[in-house]
Every structure is written in structure tokens, then in C-alpha cells.
Amino acid sequence: MSQNALVGMESSAVTVLTRAVELDTSSRFQESLICYQEGIQLLLDVLKTTKDDSKKPHYRQKIKGYMERAEQIKIRLNQEKEEGKYHEQIKITENAKGFSFEKLFKPYINEALTEVWVEDPYIRHTHQLYNLLRFCEMLLKSPCEVKTIHLLTSHDGASTTQQTSALTEIQQSLKTHGITLTIDYSTTIHDREIRFNNGWIIKIGRGLDYFKKPQSRFSIGYCDYDLRECHETTVDVFHVKHTKQT
């Protein structure tokens, strides 16, 4: 490996571990654990690759410290999950960026995830339907084997034809990827909630519709949601042993 590549890897490790510490300090422990694990792996790769023996003790010391902290967080999280006390709150401020579905949901997705429930009354208008589609795409690209997605939403009083047609298209497209989408409607649904059958429950104040409308179809942030400004909202994350099935 070239020196430039090694420097780049070390820089990436520093960035990820700095973010881990920030999340840790903010009590966003599940997210911080993911960053610690990623950063530690990067540092291990640096340690294996570097030819400068004088730097190796420094890397080993840093890795040891981060591994100890990650283990402490893991024990704490497991205990809170076991006791049903896990609750994490994420504040998305007005105009904030960097909260794509990939970034927001990544800490809660793993190989055990096979079934998802989406309860959101506002999967009606075109941009909201695209939000659902992007959420499904995110699941497809994630390290999980989702086989079923259940959607509970409300009818669009103005144009049920567009809503029904779009949801049917999403349903058919997911089927080609081996995923079943069930669609149900409620006239009383109000709360917004996403449940994973690995125990995670994510409640977003604005549901999936927390992104601001881009200035145009050709403006930055139209395609990449990490670059899209957000509305202010609160995300509450819980963990339970048994996720409600229906």
C-alpha cells in the first residue's frame, strides 16, 4: 500500500472515531458503537499495513482504549435492551443536513432484520411516495434480509388513484427483489412509527417526510438525501424484546 493510501486510511479512522466520541458524549450510544467498531477496524488495518515500527505502540494503545470503551457501551446497551429501558432521542434541527435514511437507520439494521412495519398516515403525495421508495431501496442495500414490509397509511382524499397506482408499482417492483409489500389503510391513524423485527422501534415526529423540498430537480440534494435540508423533527428510538407483529 502506498504512503498516500495509508495516510488516507488513517485520516478516515480519525474522522470516524471523532464522530464516535461525539455521539458517545451526546448519549447516542447505538450510533457511537457502530462508529467505534468501524474506526477500530480502520486503525487495525493501519496497524497491519504501516512499516513504521515507532508508530505501532501508539496505534495499539489507541485501539485498546477505543475497544475498551466500545465494550463498555455494548454491555450497557445489552443491559438496557434486556430490561426494556433503552431510549435514545435524536434531534434534527431546522435546515440540518446529513440525515439520509441510510445514516439515520444504519445503526439499527443487522442480519437479523427480516420484517419491517411502517405506520405513516402521509404516504400520499408524490414526494412522500418517493420517500417510501427510497426507504425500501435503503433496506435493499443494507446488510439484512428483509422479506416483508408492512405499510399502514391513510387514503389521499384528493387523489386516491395516484396513491394506489404508485403503491402498487412499488409493491410489484419489490416483488421482483423477493420482498412482499402489504398495504393497509386506516381512517384513524395519526402516529408515525417504524418497527424492525430485530427489536428496534423508531418514531420520527414527521414520519418519513422530514426532508425539505429541493429548489429544483437539478439542485444539489435532489438525488442525495444526505445533502438535502431537513425540517426540524425529533427521532425517538426504543428497543423491545418482542416487536409487535400486527
Rank of each mutant, 00 (worst) to 15 (best):
P121A: 11
P121T: 03
Y122A: 00
Y122H: 09
I123P: 03
I123T: 09
R124D: 02
H125F: 12
T126S: 14
T126P: 00
T126Y: 08
H127A: 05
H127W: 08
Q128C: 05
Q128H: 10
Q128N: 12
Y130E: 07
N131G: 09
L133Y: 08
R134A: 03
R134D: 14
F135R: 13
F135N: 10
E137G: 04
M138C: 11
L139F: 02
L139N: 06
L140R: 13
P143W: 04
P143G: 06
P143E: 06
P143N: 11
C144Y: 06
E145S: 13
E145L: 02
V146S: 00
V146D: 00
V146Y: 00
T148R: 07
I149E: 07
H150W: 02
H150Y: 13
L151W: 12
L151E: 05
L152Q: 12
T153W: 08
D156E: 12
G157C: 05
A158D: 13
A158G: 02
T160C: 01
Q163N: 05
T164I: 02
A166E: 10
L167K: 03
L167R: 01
L167S: 06
T168W: 02
E169F: 05
E169T: 04
E169M: 04
Q171M: 05
Q172A: 06
S173A: 05
L174C: 10
T176W: 04
T176F: 02
T176I: 14
T176K: 14
H177W: 14
G178Q: 08
G178D: 09
I179K: 06
I179C: 05
I179T: 05
T180P: 00
L181M: 07
L181K: 10
L181F: 03
T182F: 06
I183S: 05
D184L: 07
Y185D: 02
S186G: 11
S186T: 06
S186N: 06
S186F: 03
I189L: 15
I189K: 11
H190V: 07
H190K: 14
H190T: 12
D191F: 09
D191T: 15
I194H: 01
R195A: 06
F196K: 04
I201C: 10
I201N: 05
I201D: 10
I202G: 06
I204E: 01
G205A: 14
G207C: 08
L208P: 07
D209A: 10
D209G: 01
F211A: 10
F211L: 09
K212G: 03
Q215M: 08
Q215N: 13
S216A: 10
S216I: 03
S216H: 07
R217K: 12
R217E: 14
R217L: 05
R217I: 01
R217T: 01
F218G: 03
S219A: 15
I220G: 01
I220H: 04
Y222T: 15
C223D: 11
C223Q: 15
D224Q: 07
Y225Q: 11
D226N: 15
D226S: 15
D226W: 13
L227K: 15
L227C: 10
E229G: 03
H231A: 07
H231I: 02
E232Q: 15
E232D: 12
T233Q: 15
T233V: 15
T234F: 03
T234I: 14
V235A: 10
V237D: 04
V237T: 13
F238W: 10
